[in-house]
Nucleic acid binder design. Structure first.
Lengths: 336, 336
DNA sequence: TTTAGAAAAGTAAACGATTACATTTAGCAT
DNA sequence: ATGCTAAATGTAATCGTTTACTTTTCTAAA
């Protein structure tokens, strides 16, 4: 790999001059510029980003650190795609840390990202009081949070109105005459879990349906929990007629259990999930779900981050996207 | 962020000494070591990886470049998880490039990764003659290929026996009495596509079933193609009784079409997919599929890469994993 | 022909680490 | 005390950029 020095030598100028033409500094005479450009081409020179990053603390947006809880969750891969597309357009690279809701892992990745001098962070905090992320923000690093906010700290945030989304889902079920609606919620430490639960309860209250703690079940936010909790719900003396699952992993898990028992959706049990997937129509019956615009969230987060890097003083923004209820066939239809 | 210099000043020693204790150089006297350690702790010092990377071309494995064709494909997210777990254990970070089968994007990411001085690359070449990757290998960068190899070039490779996997799938169908088996294949430029097609044809030949080009359809390796090509197959005067889909995106697409038409699986149409997903049992009926061990592939690739970085001269390895036929319910059962 | 002043180019320090080489210190025999 | 050797530590170059500051070159007015 050739360096500035090589180019300078070949072109017969100093490194400073080469650097100037690279950075489009107008003071360079046309002819020297041409000489330099030729040398660059001849040597296939391309600047070393490591050296650049070491040298300049200057505001750039070349390397972005991404910290997400679970890459197996299709929602996050949508988010990643959104980030990635925007990063690509900006000639930025993204370093990814998948911390699996594991604090130690989260901390390690954070340290690595810091010491890689990333220009900014996009993170989904493990919970509202996530001290590592709070610290990060306080230390003045450019940070934008996705999916989950941080209490007592001013930080850019891009997420969805979880409570409203859940409310809409339950309302939909209620309008379909369901009166006994179970809820499989995820890890209660995760803010989104609680917001969705709040939406669930709000809807029941509003429609005068008693909240029965027996049919609100919770464990982790993963596939296995979905499967096991669905079994638990179905085993109840008085099982629900519909289940609202708190995220797509839980939904998929619940679906496995329902299939295994040969239950008919929606006749035997209706199901509505938080989080849509692009292959919801491949499910049989197609899944009714609360769609979060993952791609847009990622894209927007990246936009905010770049802004933040460029102007650290701008006021914090809080972008709340609306969810969309994707009505398909897993809850029955009006004819019911 | 504090630097070596800061630590040195606080401890009252030179930067060299600090560096020595950090790198566990035994020549440092015990007492100075203690002083230095205290200073490190006091300042919460942690070395700047950017400076380290700039300084040493030394064999390390701290930053890995990953280039994959499609992050929406669950197979690759398994691979990423495998890589990531191993990377975490080795204190390495991974920079990810998702090139979406787009050559320009691939090239840009490659350039970025190079100029970020990553210690090595894990890539899924866009095709067998991928000149960019070939060049990369020839320039002497540590590279390991996953999923797809490279012609005329010595390079580490971790993949699966695609032909055998496809063969097994078709054989399974044949034993279930299917005689007219369609194949939805993906982008014909991708080597895996061709290998799977070869396995399909091999099985038919071996069981003396004529190959009918009419029921071998191809477009891209994505969801939409799966949906449209399935429709095409189903619209034939003499449609197949079973469909073999070339990857999980195609499978999911085909499933959408089958559902939409209200066809029963496997009675009306059987389906077997290449690539398993962890939620195969959430599909109704559960999908019979050829499982690639994505996680293991990623993990193994990372292992090989670290080896390669440490000893660039070791012989190239070619790891071919076996696929596993996950028999579930989408092809019918023996009772049929 | 001078020479002021602008334009163009060059020099060298800095970013934060590693490391070859140089220097200081300590220990010990004479 | 002196010298010698080994142990401990320090000095400074280096990686590839950027950039403040300095120097050289050019233009054109006096």
């Amino acid at each position: 790999m050739s360096s500035l020095k090589n180019v300078a030598d070949l072109a017969g100028v100093s490194v400073a001059t080469v650097s100037r033409v690279l950075n489009a500094d107008e003071v360079v005479k046309y002819e020297t510029k041409v000489k330099v450009m030729n040398a660059i081409k001849a040597l296939k020179y391309s600047p070393n980003r490591v050296a650049q990053r070491l040298r300049t603390t200057r505001k750039s947006s070349r390397l972005i650190g991404l910290l997400i809880p679970d890459i197996q969750n299709p929602f996050y891969v949508d988010v990643i795609r959104g980030i990635e597309v925007f990063a690509y357009a900006n000639n930025a690279a993204v370093v990814i840390g998948n911390f699996s809701q594991d604090e130690k892992k989260e901390k390690l990745y954070l340290d690595i990202l810091k010491s890689e001098s990333v220009d900014g962070f996009i993170v989904a905090p493990s919970n509202e009081k996530d001290i590592y992320i709070k610290e990060l923000v306080k230390e003045g690093f450019p940070v934008v949070c996705i999916d989950r906010g941080l209490s007592d700290v001013e930080v850019d945030l891009v997420k969805v109105d979880n409570q409203k989304g859940a409310f809409n889902a339950i309302e939909h079920l209620i309008k379909l005459q369901h009166k006994r609606i179970g809820h499989i919620t995820g890890n209660q430490l995760i803010p989104t879990t609680m917001e969705r639960l709040a939406g669930y309860e709000q809807a029941l209250k509003q429609y005068n349906i008693a909240i029965d703690p027996e049919i609100i079940v919770s464990r982790e936010s993963d596939y296995e929990s979905g499967a096991e909790l669905a079994a638990h719900l179905l085993d109840l003396k008085n099982p629900p007629t519909a289940i609202f699952t708190g995220n797509n992993l839980l939904t998929l898990g619940a679906l496995e259990t329902i299939n295994k028992r040969g239950l008919k959706i929606p006749e035997d049990i209706a199901i509505i999930g938080f989080d849509d997937v692009y292959w919801a129509n491949s499910l049989n019956p197609p899944l009714t779900a609360v769609r979060q615009p993952g791609f847009e969230i990622g894209k927007r987060a990246m936009e905010l981050l770049i802004q933040r890097i460029l102007s650290p003083e701008r006021e914090v923004a809080s972008i709340i996207y609306k969810t969309e209820l994707m009505i398909r066939r897993s809850c029955g239809s009006k004819e019911k």
